[in-house]
């Protein structure tokens, strides 16, 4: 057996100390060690985007990051997006415009969309589509996802 590593990661502002195998991915630790199951795993190869999280302010697929790499670093997941009962404008617009159906891709899409709006508060439809091209959705045909993101962007610009 490989000796486990002792890792400290800040997740949504909370410090988590845990032991993990050197080969364990961040998504595995988030879900199975820290029981933060809002982050989803759809492919384990970085192709579907369901496991999208922010690592030190950068959008990553948490299936392609080893948990040991996040020692001393900060991670943001879907569980940290709403502040108490206050939904992020993206979350609210996804609800109001029906930007989700089954909901399995939704956490990753929301994290990726938030990263987009932090860089580009006024994305065009094309920019939105290319930014979200790493997040597969099989239910919606993307129409209402793109509309929800652009409506949230507009609301946030006005705020």
């Amino acid at each position: 057996m490989v000796k486990k590593a002792h890792v400290t990661t800040s997740v949504n502002g909370d410090e988590y100390e845990y032991l993990c195998e050197p080969g364990q991915t961040l998504v595995d630790v988030l879900r199975n060690e820290l029981e933060l199951t809002g982050t989803k795993e759809g492919c384990s190869t970085g192709d579907c985007g369901a496991c999208s999280v922010m690592l030190e302010g950068e959008l990553v697929c948490s299936c392609l990051v080893l948990a040991v790499e996040t020692d001393g670093k900060s991670v943001e997941t879907i569980e940290g997006m709403a502040k108490g009962d206050d939904l992020h404008p993206l979350q609210r617009n996804f609800l109001e415009l029906n930007g989700l159906q089954c909901g399995i891709c939704t956490p990753g899409v929301l994290i990726a969309a938030k990263a987009l709006l932090e860089r580009n508060p006024n994305p065009t439809e094309t920019e939105t589509r290319f930014w979200l091209a790493g997040n597969l959705c099989r239910c919606t045909g993307y129409d209402k996802i793109v509309r929800s993101v652009m409506a949230a962007a507009e609301e946030m610009r006005g705020a």
Partner: peptide
């Protein structure tokens, strides 16, 4: 079911 799905609480 939407609120649980946009906050990561929905159980799959």
């Amino acid at each position: 079911d939407g609120l649980d799905k946009v906050t990561g609480r929905a159980k799959f």
